[in-house]
């Protein structure tokens, strides 16, 4: 048991992860750039014009993958938060910290593109649609995480406190989503629910998936880069950091 634990600790130690992240980040950056170019090309030039919504619908190639990512990233954060609380590994908290800004960014992107889509489709920038409202609340949860983390000076304490917050949030998300939907059906107003999926052309679906993968690669690349700077900041007094070639110069 105890030797097992030490192995874990070494495996997830910042000193070994730092160079690994450095090696992986450029690859994911390249993948992200290529996929985004392919996805945008397919979405804007290959996919057919929607007979009902015209050209304006093309924003969904950014909107839908962004809102997927906004939820996935929160789940990934919750996974790392749980790992950090259970195994007390140092890297977990840094992973959560490095993912949060990207998650918040995608949530904001989803809200923003949603508003842009809503204007021509529904004639208004904002509709109290269940999905939009849940997305807004998710955005608040991200902001809450970032605010809590930045107001605690001790990084270890910040990691543990925010891990609890993220886990509480992840339990709440389905409840919030469900209650917002209930609320929405009760207040059925002029909002048009957009049924996508079944009626969508396969080219559209493929472009959307490509964009989703592109965002994945982007998320991995940017959070690896971010986690590297978090490691450097937190471990600046450690010997292995001072022995790094880029520090020595």
């Amino acid at each position: 048991m105890s030797s097992n634990r030490i192995n874990w600790f070494k495996y997830s130690s910042p000193a070994t992860f730092y160079p690994l992240a450095g090696k992986l980040a450029p690859w994911f950056t390249a993948i992200a750039v290529i996929l985004i170019m392919v996805g945008l090309y397919m979405g804007f030039f290959v996919a057919p014009t929607d007979y009902k919504q015209g050209e304006g619908y093309r924003i969904i190639f950014v909107h839908v993958p962004a809102s997927w990512m906004s939820m996935f990233i929160y789940l990934v954060m919750a996974f790392w938060a749980a790992m950090g609380l259970v195994f007390n590994t140092r890297m977990s908290g840094m992973m959560v910290q490095s993912l949060a800004p990207t998650g918040a960014m995608f949530t904001f992107l989803a809200l923003w593109t949603g508003a842009f889509w809503g204007k021509p489709m529904w004639g208004t920038w904002w509709v109290w649609d269940a999905r939009l409202t849940s997305e807004l609340i998710l955005f608040f949860l991200y902001i809450g995480y970032i605010a809590l983390h930045s107001s605690i000076d001790d990084n270890r304490r910040a990691d543990r406190a925010t891990a609890i917050l993220v886990l509480v949030g992840v339990v709440n998300i389905p409840i919030i989503y469900y209650s917002v939907q209930w609320w929405n059906t009760l207040h059925q107003g002029a909002s048009v629910s957009v049924k996508s999926g079944s009626s969508m052309a396969s080219v559209m679906l493929i472009s959307m998936l490509i964009m989703a993968f592109a965002f994945w690669a982007y998320t991995i690349a940017i959070s690896l880069a971010r986690v590297r700077s978090i490691i450097l900041e937190r471990e600046r007094d450690k010997q292995w950091v001072s022995e790094l070639p880029e520090i020595k110069q």
């Binding site: 000076d153 001790d154 990084n155 600046r236 007094d237």
Partner: peptide, 10 residues
């Protein structure tokens, strides 16, 4: 045994 406590980064 082998106790270590870190406060802040120290």
């Amino acid at each position: 045994n082998n106790l270590e406590v870190i406060r802040g980064d120290r």
